[in-house]
């Protein structure tokens, strides 16, 4: 079977899935639709009950937080579709962007600095991918450890303090977070571009389709001639690049980067978005559209809970319970095979 045939077959499979979803969508709505409907209901509920929720200022804030969460989640989705997981994302996001902020006080050009920051993120991504693909350490351990290393190196070598601030005159940079183009805040625009590019990459390119194959059955993928190891590295590189973009967006929006974000529960939010969005942790399933929908739902929920002045610990408990429920449902829908179950799978 040639590559083209393969791609066509995959295409047909996804078409069939779509047509199935269309035919029976009244009977059995897809996960995206359920999540979208829930998001709408939540939005309406908060808009009616909470004063200030539907105000323009809050909507922009909400869209910005959705954007950052969404960028991280699209990157994570690529890894999860390839049956991996990247716990080092928040660490990469914090360190690479804080480093960029630190370097901006030197006399290097912004473009050079950006490339340096992206380069750092990509190095961590390559390291992650190499450890997972070649040393064959389960991705969760590998990325947990590289997250520690990345954060440690940042604090030790690259940064001077916990917080990093851009210089006052960095208007170009701050535009990335605070500017408004076509009536949309820049973070939202960046998110849409990232989501669009990755969507096209996953659905319309051969390599993108191969990532689905990799996640579905890595042995079969290898047998039909996909170079699975470089492909795994690529998924972690995409995830790290997304983390960098998310970090820059955050830094530009609030004009600072607090590296303590590593100790926050942001990574759980990302996992929540990905799992709720229907990207199964068993790999090979889901797409960017559902991740976008998931990000909207989580963004609305978090924003609503914050306005309700719910204690962050209670929020965390709620997140944990919802995430557990989502994982249980995911496991029910896509049960793992007791017989072929591999150690170290999530």
């Amino acid at each position: 079977m040639s590559r083209q045939d393969l791609a066509e077959t995959a295409e047909n499979a996804s078409l069939n899935q779509n047509s199935y979803a269309k035919k029976g969508w009244l009977k059995k709505p897809s996960q995206e639709l359920i999540v979208l409907a829930t998001a709408l209901v939540c939005f309406l509920f908060f808009a009616v009950t909470l004063t200030g929720f539907a105000s323009f200022g809050n909507l922009v804030t909400m869209l910005r937080s959705i954007a950052v969460l969404g960028i991280l989640s699209t990157g994570m989705a690529v890894v999860v579709i390839g049956r991996g997981l990247d716990l080092s994302q928040v660490s990469v996001m914090a360190i690479s962007s804080a480093w960029v902020l630190t370097l901006m006080s030197s006399d290097m050009s912004l473009v050079t600095i950006m490339f340096l920051g992206l380069g750092f993120a990509l190095v961590v991504g390559i390291l992650n991918g190499w450890i997972v693909a070649f040393i064959e350490i389960p991705p969760l351990f590998a990325t947990l450890a590289t997250g520690l290393v990345c954060f440690g190196v940042g604090r030790w070598v690259l940064l001077s303090g916990v917080h990093a601030y851009p210089p006052k005159e960095a208007a170009d940079f701050l535009f990335l977070g605070q500017g408004i183009v076509f009536g949309l805040p820049m973070p939202v625009l960046i998110f849409l571009v990232v989501a669009g590019v990755i969507h096209v990459f996953l659905r319309r390119t051969t390599i993108g389709r191969h990532i689905y194959g990799l996640g579905d059955n890595i042995l079969a993928a290898r047998l039909i001639g996909i170079s699975v190891r470089p492909l795994i590295i690529l998924t972690y590189m995409i995830s790290a690049a997304a983390a960098f973009i998310a970090g820059i967006t955050t830094a530009a929006t609030v004009a600072s980067m607090n590296t303590e974000i590593v100790n926050s529960t942001l990574i759980f939010d990302v996992l929540l978005v990905v799992v709720l969005g229907g990207v199964s942790l068993s790999g090979g399933r889901g797409g960017i559209v559902s991740v976008v929908v998931g990000a909207i739902l989580i963004g609305i929920l978090l924003n609503g809970m914050t306005i309700l002045n719910i204690n962050s610990d209670v929020q965390n408990i709620a997140k944990a319970v919802v995430l557990l429920a989502a994982i249980i449902v995911d496991r029910r829908l896509h049960p793992k095979d007791e017989e072929t179950d591999k150690q170290g799978d999530h």
Partner: peptide, 13 residues
Amino acid sequence: GGPTLVMQGMIML
């Protein structure tokens, strides 16, 4: 902080 974290991560890896 930093070097300890790096060391811990490296030892684990």
